[in-house]
């Protein structure tokens, strides 16, 4: 089943056509990757999906048109996202970071909070259980009390994924999760992404430069260059595509 459909997406930055008539479809339960040279407009696609940049075109999530919703509404519907450069709440603890991720799921109202109602405690309890569950999966349980800024870069990236998972999204947009990670950390990341897909039933969409990771993990790949889609297909098809090789010639070699 299609979970995310991007139709005729255009983004302009002044005179630059950053995303040019892009369309692609992501199937539920598949790992879909977007690759392309630097400046191809990959991150802009994510920003357009979350409605952070001005765009034209239509985006459907589970069959519903979300192109005109606000960012926080799109997030509440179940699309999570991480950033290329870690974007944690730097001066909050890892646990607090995770709890902010639970914001949309926490159903205690303001009234519950000032009256210390039963619902407040239930909600807080659920949030904590969820945070520990996720910390357990990501093996960051012993870091929960640490201020995010003090963690090594690789761990921060993992925490960021954890924060996005807290809202129990159906689609997770991962923007270069392997960037800046060591080889062993990348291997660990590979496992995490697979578990996210298989165990949590979340559909990951990946922007990635690490070709080994992309080719191993993806079910389907969209290749972009200068804002346009130049190819789409399975990893095996993409590897042989002459257009793709041309775009990458002199660039990244895999």
């Amino acid at each position: 089943m299609e979970i995310l459909v991007v139709e005729d997406l255009d983004v302009w930055f002044g005179g630059v056509h950053a995303v040019d008539h892009l369309h692609f479809t992501v199937m539920e339960g598949e790992i879909h990757s977007i690759i392309g040279p630097n400046g191809a407009g990959k991150t802009t696609v994510f920003n357009a999906i979350m409605n952070i940049v001005k765009k034209s075109g239509r985006i459907f999530f589970k069959g519903m048109d979300i192109s005109h919703l606000k960012t926080h509404e799109i997030a509440s519907l179940g699309i999570g996202r991480t950033f290329q450069n870690v974007n944690l709440f730097k001066y909050m603890t890892v646990l607090d970071n995770l709890l902010v991720g639970y914001h949309t799921k926490a159903n205690a109202t303001f009234l519950d909070e000032i009256t210390f109602s039963k619902k407040l405690f239930q909600s807080a309890r659920k949030a904590l259980i969820k945070a520990f569950e996720i910390a357990d999966v990501l093996e960051i349980k012993n870091r929960l009390g640490v201020i995010a800024n003090l963690l090594p870069y690789g761990v921060q990236k993992i925490v960021e994924i954890g924060r996005a998972l807290m809202s129990e999204p159906s689609v997770l947009l991962l923007d270069e999760p392997a960037a800046g990670l060591s080889e062993s950390e990348t291997a660990w990341l590979y496992q995490i992404i697979s578990r996210i897909k298989d165990e949590m039933k979340i559909t990951p969409i990946l922007i990635e430069h690490d070709m080994k990771l992309v080719m191993n993990i993806s079910d389907r790949i969209t290749v972009m260059d200068f804002g346009k889609k130049i190819a789409e297909g399975s990893p095996a098809e993409i590897e042989k595509n002459p257009e793709v090789l041309k775009a990458y010639l002199g660039g990244v070699v895999w």
Partner: peptide, 26 residues
């Protein structure tokens, strides 16, 4: 420190965009 909205306020004060992406109505 303790409420959901308080946490959202702290989050927003640190990083508005990230908070929006967490579903916080900033």
């Amino acid at each position: 420190r303790t409420t959901k909205i308080g946490l959202a306020i702290r989050a927003t004060s640190e990083d508005e965009e990230a908070s929006m992406l967490m579903g916080v109505d900033t």
